[in-house]
Design a protein around this nucleic acid. Structure first.
Lengths: 222, 222
DNA sequence: CGGTGTACTATACACCGTACGTTATAGCTT
DNA sequence: AAGCTATAACGTACGGTGTATAGTACACCG
């Protein structure tokens, strides 16, 4: 090798660059296929270089999650509180659909980080302003969050399965092998069940049920 | 080696034995630590022996899931439909709490299997008997399922984090570093938020919201 | 100009799931 | 009773994973 040091220059890496590249990879090839080695290769760097910026893989996951949570839109002002709640929930769901890895990142790790707190602050503020007491606001927040997480994660899961031909075939055969005598209702409702697995309409249906229950609770305080 | 062939006899393995042992291991050491190699070792057998009975790890996961779903209690008869719905949802949640691996098995894989269909049949039957049309019954079923899955998975996740000292410390410090100026509501409601992360009360709160919405929908059909 | 901190590399370990080819035995056929 | 075949279980190997540990070369500062 000649005298010219063709080594990669020094500060090629930064937390931001790593997080952005990691996000790109997760979206391009799926969350399961993501690996630190692949990320390092994409960055033209050895796998261990990442450990300068993140303590381990989970630490990186947390950073990616917070990076995404920054994209959740803020609460619209000057709207009735049910519409504000709807907006936040839909915003989070929309983001999860745009970045499917976010669903897994939210579901598999405890919440932390600045942007995640920002979203919670928005929703909690709406509920408190609407007149809910502390306890009810907290309960409602948890309920809404887990609903959005569960419904949207499930939707993404099912959509992925539909894309994968192996999974699609298995789903079909599973349905076909159900005996109409033993499971009459499931067989009868098969088309509806397959139709209602996901979509804005399905999401809003459940969300509206929750909001209807909430509004009724406001009208008749204990 | 003397003439006595001390090889392990032939049919030492069976699908049932494998599934039961797998379940034991998952519960003993956590779902993430579970591996086919560990399972094979526990059974006193080479890793590849399992592939005689299951096509791959996911196939085994499906079998374990269905094995667990068999334990979901049936629908109580002679009760108002909201109570029946409550019973099914609580039964599923209870089982997920008793067997934390079930949460991950349900969330990470599409539904299939005989026992899983049985549970769906029960809930759908209740809804149809209550007078919901096909579409609404299907929508409601999906909503209830995703709520139970989301709420309970989250609860389990959080409980696990509380057990792990590293996670607990991180949660504490995350909360402590939130500036009261930027996130006043989150900081103010910290005790309530921590208290409402899980528990029967929290679960029932959300479930009752959904049921209240449903009953209101019955009273005022579109 | 020499020392020091740090960004990055190299090597290695202990795992993982599973593809492939081999062996030995249980049970049927003759 | 002998032989054949199907298959349960084995052994080996491959390509991957996260990360602990130790080493290296550059940028900066005295």
């Amino acid at each position: 090798m000649p005298a010219g040091r063709t080594r990669t220059p020094r500060n090629t890496l930064s937390p931001e660059l790593i997080v952005r590249t990691a996000l790109d990879l997760m979206e391009a090839q799926g969350n399961d296929a993501f690996s630190l080695r692949g990320l390092a290769a994409e960055l033209g760097v050895g796998p261990m270089a990442l450990y300068t910026y993140f303590r381990n893989k989970d630490d990186l996951y947390d950073a990616v999650r917070d990076h995404l949570m920054a994209l959740v839109p803020g609460v619209p002002e000057d709207a009735p509180w049910p519409d504000q709640v709807r907006a936040v929930c839909r915003g989070l769901r929309r983001l999860m659909l745009q970045h499917p890895c976010l669903a897994q990142l939210l579901a598999s790790r405890p919440l932390s980080g600045h942007e995640t707190a920002r979203v919670a602050e928005g929703l909690l503020g709406v509920l408190r302003s609407a007149g809910f007491d502390k306890e009810t606001a907290a309960r409602t927040h948890t309920t809404l969050f887990t609903y959005v997480l569960g419904a949207t994660s499930w939707e993404i899961q099912m959509a992925a399965e539909r894309g994968n031909p192996e999974g699609w075939r298995r789903l079909r055969t599973t349905m076909a092998t159900l005996s109409p005598e033993e499971f009459p209702t499931v067989v009868e409702l098969a088309p509806e069940l397959s139709r209602t697995t996901g979509g804005d309409e399905q999401f809003d249906y459940g969300l509206d049920l929750l909001l209807a229950g909430l509004q009724q609770q406001v009208r008749t305080p204990s």
